[in-house]
Design a protein around this nucleic acid. Structure first.
Lengths: 230, 230
DNA sequence: GACAAGCAGATTGTCGACAATCTAGCAATA
DNA sequence: TATTGCTAGATTGTCGACAATCTGCTTGTC
């Protein structure tokens, strides 16, 4: 018997494809926060019946990017500053934990994967593909969670990631300006390769600060405008 | 306008009721880990069609207590020692965070609620209702998360709670002996009312240790037996 | 004009039936 | 005997139609 291990074949249910399509539409901002999802319209567009669509929507509700009100409809979650702030402060603690747990487990495969993902971010930056840039940056950041060898920690991160990606995409879309072309992840990658765990933790925390602060002030601005309008 | 605030009326969809029924069955151990859920059989027992049942199952899959394999079936998750260990070490960090965040926000309402939940645990203990004992103990513990004023932290705790309840119920069921009648939560409650935050954090960590260690050794025993059997 | 009642349309929730897929058992073959 | 191919039964995935509920508008009344 050869020691080749096959990866599981793709899920070929309509439901799984619908989940992927909807998630992508939400995370890239094609479906805007607060927007209602009309089941009949979407099912016709996708050429599917409502049954698998509804099941897919239940999954995304539990994933935290949709919200459902019985007999009223299912909506893309509304983004308020408090949510972003909560996610931000929670993420800080999670990051410290992830780095601590992953630290001793770093090996050549870790460093290789780190470089690979870093390169993917740089490629997306060169391509001026902002959506992919956010996606790859989060994947780069997620490596420490994958390496931390704790299923609950990883799962929590993955849940959080959906919303983070949505927040950042929203932000990008709003300011609608070319993405910074300099490489903001260089230091992070170097520190993760180094010997000073505390320094890596500190940098992760501060680096996150920068992105989040900008995002927060944007969301606060939105809310101020909304309350004035009402 | 009177300042009375009404609580939202109950969700009256079959789906919501099915979710509640299934969750309860799983968390109390009536549905055992690894067991397959036959859709037709369950839908007939509940006198419901498969559509709302399937939607309910999708929710519980995302909640992390069911797992689904396309065209094969949906199963109650299998409990392995590693999962318990992961949940345990993750919970330690979360607890520290929750206590820290909730600490400054403690008020009379917090202390009242703390007593109320503590009383509920004692009542369940007097009634020898082990299921309810686990449930109320987790609710007592969850108060610091509700008071921490962080939606992501609270949501993460609630997700984790499902699994914790399942683990403990399984354990209880297995050893099948009367529950300790002494009040193990007295110190915890007193410390949360006190002035020394670090002490409260330390106790939470150590108190959890006790329960988990027992649970872990039980799960390890199960796995050892299973591997021998195979 | 203000307000309540009721109707029409649209949308979500649920149902029963059909299609696609899997599993276990048996027969055929080397 | 071990392996492969096939078939029947059971189960999951998907569909189209119907029932329950909501929303906005119209109508009638004062």
């Amino acid at each position: 018997m050869a020691k080749l291990d096959f990866s599981p074949i793709a899920d070929t249910t309509r439901r799984a494809e619908i989940v992927a399509l909807l998630r992508r539409a939400i995370l890239t901002g094609q479906l805007e926060p607060g927007q209602k999802l009309n089941e009949l319209r979407i099912s016709e567009q996708m050429r599917v019946s409502r049954a698998p669509l509804r099941e897919a929507m239940r999954e995304l509700v539990q994933e935290g990017i949709l919200t459902s009100i019985p007999y009223a409809g299912t909506f893309v979650i509304n983004v308020i500053a408090k949510d972003i702030d909560d996610a931000y402060s929670f993420n800080k603690v999670m990051d410290e934990l992830a780095i601590e747990r992953a630290w001793k487990l770093r090996d050549q495969r870790f460093f290789d994967e780190l470089d690979r993902r870093h390169e993917a971010v740089k490629q997306a930056t060169r391509d001026l593909d902002t959506t992919r840039q956010i996606e790859t940056a989060l994947q780069l950041h997620g490596l420490i969670y994958e390496w931390a060898d704790n299923s609950v920690l990883l799962e929590t991160w993955q849940r959080l990631t959906s919303r983070l990606q949505m927040y950042f995409a929203l932000h990008q879309r709003a300011r609608n300006e070319p993405v910074p072309s300099e490489d903001v992840h260089e230091t992070y990658v170097q520190l993760l390769k180094g010997k000073d765990m505390r320094a890596a933790q500190r940098h992760a925390r501060e680096h996150i600060d920068l992105d989040f602060e900008e995002l927060l002030s944007y969301a606060r601005g939105l809310e101020k405008r909304a309350s004035k309008g009402a």
